[in-house]
Amino acid sequence: MQVAIHAGVAFSDEGLVMSSLGANRRILADYRTAVLGPRRSRQFVKVVSDSILQGQPDAETPNSLAELVTGNPNLDRVILSSDKFFGPRRTALQHGQIYPFAGKRTAYTESLLDGAQVEVFAGLVNPVVFIPKILTSIHEDHRQDILASTDLSCLSWLGMVEDLLDLAPQVQLTLWEHENSPLIWGDIIRAISGLPDEAPLHEEYAFLSSLLTEAGQRHVLDIVRKGDALDRTSRREEMANILDEYARLEQIEEELDMPGWNADIVEAFTDLYEQDLATIRSMQDVRVLQI
């Protein structure tokens, strides 16, 4: 059994992965793949979290997870999605790291799913956007603790990725830049679903279209109707051009709500993010989906 875990991250897809997977349930069924709904995904993460808090799994913990993901003998792959898998938001910025418990939680989950092939998927978000959103989404007490104990300027995704590789080396890790998601959405959904590159998808360009003016949406529809008249590279280039020309600014511009952060700080975080992404792309054991 393959267990594919879409771990978010927080403030990346905002439920769009589950929406796309739901729109393609029939296609997934043809490939002996099923999606756990939001309730069962939350239940899965709760079982793992409760077991971690207890210090060790009780005898029923592996059975509880097995019932959630292996209940149908006709399935080869089960998908779940939760941006709490790497940890709740209040723990997302601690110990000088983003999601400092991601590696341990992933390794622990793999041990509970003994015999399953576990894969983890996550879209990384520019820390200059991610950090303020996390801080404004948690309780004031947790926020003040983080600000008092954490050098925000040192936070990056590299530590989390290295922990995942070190602590859960048997787990296949697939990452992408959230900022590229509209242009590679089909690749993301196929990767999570374990589908071949040529597998058709419903609503493959729905995310991209949601960011565009009506004129841009018509252009996307025109390209989709051309089908195989454009090769993969040409289609991707056409979509990128459409996004550049017809994007609705209110849909793609992020408002930063972090007192004291100026243009220099934003640029520094973005430069660090790009450096980390370059390092991550060079890692042999990480699959990175790119434009």
Rank of each mutant, 00 (worst) to 15 (best):
V78F: 06
I189M: 01
E253L: 12
P196W: 07
R236L: 14
D271P: 03
D276K: 01
R287H: 02
L124P: 01
M258D: 06
T91Y: 10
Y205P: 00
W185P: 02
S49W: 13
D231C: 09
R25A: 15
L93N: 02
Y273K: 04
N241R: 15
Q94E: 14
N241K: 13
Q251T: 11
Y246Q: 15
C154I: 07
E203M: 06
H219G: 00
A34W: 10
P169D: 01
L221K: 11
L65R: 10
E238P: 06
D276E: 11
R143P: 02
C154S: 14
H202L: 11
V128G: 12
Q43D: 09
S234P: 00
L28E: 00
M283H: 04
L155H: 05
R281A: 10
G15R: 05
D187T: 06
L183G: 01
V286R: 02
A107E: 14
D197Q: 12
V45R: 08
I98C: 10
M18H: 12
R42I: 02
K133Y: 07
D257H: 05
L272K: 15
E14Q: 14
N63I: 10
I79V: 07
M18G: 15
R77Q: 05
R232C: 10
I131D: 00
V266W: 03
D30V: 03
A191N: 05
K133V: 01
S193F: 02
L152M: 09
M1F: 12
S111K: 15
Q251G: 08
E238R: 15
M160I: 00
S282R: 10
L112K: 11
Y205W: 14
K226L: 10
V224N: 07
A122P: 02
L221M: 05
T150F: 08
Q54G: 12
L113I: 00
G186Q: 04
P100D: 04
E198Q: 13
L112P: 04
L152E: 06
K133L: 05
S193K: 00
K226H: 12
R225I: 00
L28H: 03
L173D: 00
D257Q: 09
I189T: 03
P132H: 04
A247P: 04
T33H: 01
Q251P: 01
E140M: 06
E255Q: 09
A4L: 06
Q170M: 06
F101S: 15
I52E: 13
P62K: 06
A215R: 14
V78I: 13
I280Y: 09
Q290F: 12
G227I: 03
A278E: 15
I265T: 13
L201Y: 03
F121Q: 00
L135Y: 01
D83W: 08
P196H: 05
I131T: 03
D145I: 02
D276P: 02
